[in-house]
Design a protein around this nucleic acid. Structure first.
Length: 451
RNA sequence: GGCCCUAUCGUCUAACGGUUAGGACAGAAGCUUUUCAAGCUUUAAACCGGGGUUCGAUUCCCCGUAGGGUCACCA
């Protein structure tokens, strides 16, 4: 059996969205699964619309996703071969030069190369959909080059795929209608026709093909939002495919092992951001604390990192707390902006009213509770001041006089927030000195006369 | 409109003639709990319609219906 060769052939005429990369992922996975080769070919035959910026974005995205390729081509470098093929088609009577007025209204006469359509019924076997049959008569003598040295899509694709030995063409369903005319070209050129697998489309919430016009984001958007590449790979591979088990979280290696064209869906898949968020969170949980911390640092806004008590050691302690509240690391920014990060690195400012637990608004009562908390915590040695030891020390007292009465003011004293991790966790993170300082600060507030 | 493709919970999907139609995300409820989150448990939720074939159809065939793709001197 010959080596399997697949390719990803994007045109750099815009930013590519998740649906496009899903195609790349399937081609890549199929090649790797079968120990084959994966080729990237930039289809830039449309010189007006192709831009280096887009090409760079595509290559960056592939690298980020981890889709390493065995070869990379730019179609514009391959024009000599296309011209040769065109000449051959003309020589064999399968194509002809047609002098026509340009459609742009300029009145200019162009020497288009048209394919002499044999008007056959073309049937091909699609790995995903089975046999697909079309009558090519209504295609007419379609144009395959603007000039003999200016090839168009169909011609260029066929010549390149044949010369690169591509065995499996894995692409979107929107190419189904292109396939018959490309097969006609394969036949006329005497090349053997590759296998086809047309993937179901990836659609948006309105059930239509993902497109930038309709708000689909380029893949780099997700990178910039702090999604993990392995999570995106995982998510993309599951749009239109599943291994038939109940496993949903996969590493890249597992995907390379499991992927199978036979199990690809026929119907369109929805780019479901909520599922992506869940998958991303699952992957975040599988990271080491160090790795999580590196991501958090990358997204932490400077108004936090410039706080006087901000240190990496401290950040390392709070990373698990932060990670609990996000699905992607970009959310660190919102968390910080909502004021849910700063209190870890500086004393909070308090609202007296918030210090009271539910209906007991009596300052004297609350102050007594805090006094007792301070008294109990004082006895814990600072080198053993952890979430566990503080909880053990306080639990009995709190249970006795009502947990809310003790733990709410304590927690509020530590965070200055109506929502935060529990007071024991915070104590462990802050250490004895800071913990006692903050509780004392809140206690002072209760001693001050009401204004 | 022509041609082509598709059709299971809101979403991603399992099932490859016989199941109480399974799982996951999202939703709801409960537990836990000082708050938020996380976690655990429970729950609601689907075979597009009509004909066949068959002892038996979600599954196979046909016709509808709906959705999508494509009809370039773009790719």
């Amino acid at each position: 059996m010959s080596t399997i060769v697949t390719r990803f052939a994007p045109s750099p005429t815009g930013f590519l969205h998740g649906g496009n990369y899903r195609t790349a992922v399937f081609s890549y996975l199929f090649a790797r699964k079968n120990k084959g080769r994966f080729i990237v070919r930039i289809e830039d035959t449309d010189r007006e619309r192709s831009k280096k910026e887009y090409e760079d974005n595509i290559m960056d995205s592939l690298a980020w996703l981890g889709l390493e390729y065995d070869a990379q081509y730019r179609q514009s470098d391959l024009v000599a071969g296309h011209t040769k093929a065109l000449q051959k088609l003309i020589d064999t009577g399968n194509a002809y030069i047609s002098r026509e007025e340009a459609k742009d209204g300029s009145g200019q006469i162009r020497e288009l190369v048209r394919f002499k359509n044999p008007n056959q019924r073309v049937t091909f076997h699609d790995i995903i959909r089975g046999d697909i049959s079309t009558d090519t008569t209504d295609l007419g003598d379609f144009v395959i080059a603007k000039r003999i040295d200016e090839p168009l899509f169909h011609l260029a694709v066929v010549v390149d795929d044949a010369s690169m030995g591509v065995t499996h063409i894995i692409r979107g369903e929107d190419h189904i209608s292109n396939t018959p005319r490309q097969i006609l070209l394969y036949n006329a050129l005497g090349f053997s026709v590759p296998q086809y697998a047309h993937l179901p489309l990836v659609v948006d919430e309105k059930r239509s093909k993902l497109s930038k016009r309709r708000g689909a984001q380029p893949l780099t958007y997700y990178r910039d939002q702090g999604y993990l590449p392995e999570a995106i790979l995982n998510f993309l591979s599951l749009v239109g495919w599943n291994p038939g088990t109940e496993q949903e979280i996969f590493t890249k290696e597992e995907l390379m092992q499991l992927f199978d064209l036979e199990r690809v869906q026929k119907s369109a898949g929805f780019f479901n951001i909520e599922k992506l968020n869940w998958i991303n969170k699952e992957h975040i949980k599988r990271l080491t604390i160090e790795e999580q911390c590196a991501y958090v640092e990358r997204f932490m806004p400077s108004f936090i990192t410039t706080l006087p008590h901000y240190t990496r050691e401290k950040l390392l302690l709070i990373v698990p707390l932060l990670v609990d509240h996000i699905t992607h690391f970009g959310e660190i920014v919102t968390l910080a902006e909502r004021g849910e990060v700063a209190y870890y690195f500086e004393h909070p400012t308090y609202s007296r009213e918030e210090l009271f637990w539910k209906d007991d608004k009596d300052a004297e009562h609350t102050r007594q509770k805090l006094d007792k908390v301070i008294e109990i915590l004082q006895k814990i040695p600072s080198d053993n001041f952890t979430a566990e030891t503080t909880k053990d020390a306080l639990w009995g007292y709190a249970s006795e006089v009502g947990k809310g009465n003790v733990l709410w003011p304590m927690r509020y004293a530590l965070s200055g927030r109506d929502k935060s991790p529990d007071p024991f966790t915070l104590s462990g993170v802050f250490g004895k000195e800071v913990t006692l300082q903050r509780i004392e600060l809140a206690r002072q507030l209760l001693l001050a006369p009401l204004s």
